Simulated assay, not measured.
Amino acid sequence: MRQLILDLLPESPPSLDNFVAGGNDETLAALTGWLAGTLEATAFCLHGEAGCGKTHVLLACGFNYIDAAANPGLDGVTADGPLAVDNVEALDASGQIALFALFNQLRASGERLLTAAGQPPSHLALREDLRTRLGAGLIYRLQPLSDAEKAAALAAQARERALKLTPEAIDYLMRHAPRNMRALSALIVALDRYTLEHKRAVTLPLLRELLTQEATV
């Protein structure tokens, strides 16, 4: 996709308010309670398939965010405050030792650890002591949005910007644009700007023009 969409993403930083919950109300309620201190546990683990919003939620919580896929050894990570560790399954041997030590430090200081992975802790290929620590905390699954939920979210975001998106236009976006909600939401922002700049209504030819332009820049 065009760099325009990537440039737009920081304008809408991930928050729990702009996370499209879909069927995840129970999970978000538990997470909110944990963040508020009404649910006591050192660790909270989110698991779910790629694209379900795990990274969005971890970033939204405001913890010190670490992506284990980019830093599998957790080099330089300290327990100075609450931690959010994404892609826990990507930790290498030294990273697993480091996370076990960080967990113990966080628990001793009353801080918290939020993690995300494709599977619940019991199914991850981790050291037994680390898997036990993570498995003793709160564990919730993030359900991916259905196509109908994504379409409804796009329609709502378009209405907020006074964009007139027909069902056919939404169907076109769903078939030709990236399927994750953050990229789709950014595309609505790009579409709003594009229609204002060119003083044109949203039509299928305009959508094709925008997406083709983004694919070639």
Results as ranks from 00 to 15, higher is better:
F44L: 00
P13W: 00
V189Y: 10
A125L: 10
R2L: 15
K164T: 07
S15N: 01
E89I: 07
G110D: 15
D17T: 07
R141G: 03
L145E: 01
A169P: 07
L28M: 02
P82N: 14
V217D: 11
S185M: 13
M174T: 04
R127V: 14
H56K: 04
D129R: 06
T166W: 05
L106S: 02
P120Q: 04
A30S: 06
A108S: 06
I66N: 09
V57W: 10
L58E: 10
N87A: 11
A152W: 05
A90H: 15
N71F: 14
E89F: 13
A136P: 10
L196H: 07
M181L: 12
Y65P: 15
G76F: 00
A116C: 04
S185D: 11
G118K: 11
R131F: 03
A90C: 14
I66M: 13
I188S: 08
D171K: 08
R107Q: 13
G73A: 11
T55F: 03
P144A: 02
N71W: 14
A125F: 03
L46K: 04
L134E: 09
G51S: 03
A90K: 13
P72F: 15
T212V: 08
A108C: 08
L134Q: 09
T132V: 12
P120V: 00
G73M: 06
G23W: 05
L6G: 15
F100D: 11
D17P: 13
V217W: 12
A116R: 07
G23K: 09
A136G: 09
L31I: 00
R159D: 12
A68I: 11
E214Y: 03
L187W: 11
F63M: 10
A70V: 14
L134Y: 12
L113G: 02
A30F: 15
T212D: 12
S12E: 12
D92R: 00
K150G: 02
L91V: 04
G95M: 09
A50Q: 12
E11R: 15
S109V: 04
G33L: 05
A155M: 13
D86T: 14
L138W: 06
P178C: 03
L204K: 11
T203R: 11
A41D: 03
Q96I: 09
P13M: 00
V217R: 13
E26R: 09
C52I: 09
P14F: 06
P167W: 08
F103W: 07
A36E: 14
T42V: 06
I97P: 08
L173I: 01
K164W: 15
Y194H: 12
D129Q: 12
L35H: 05
G53I: 08
Q105C: 09
R161K: 03
P14Q: 00
A117L: 10
S122L: 12
T55M: 02
K164Q: 14
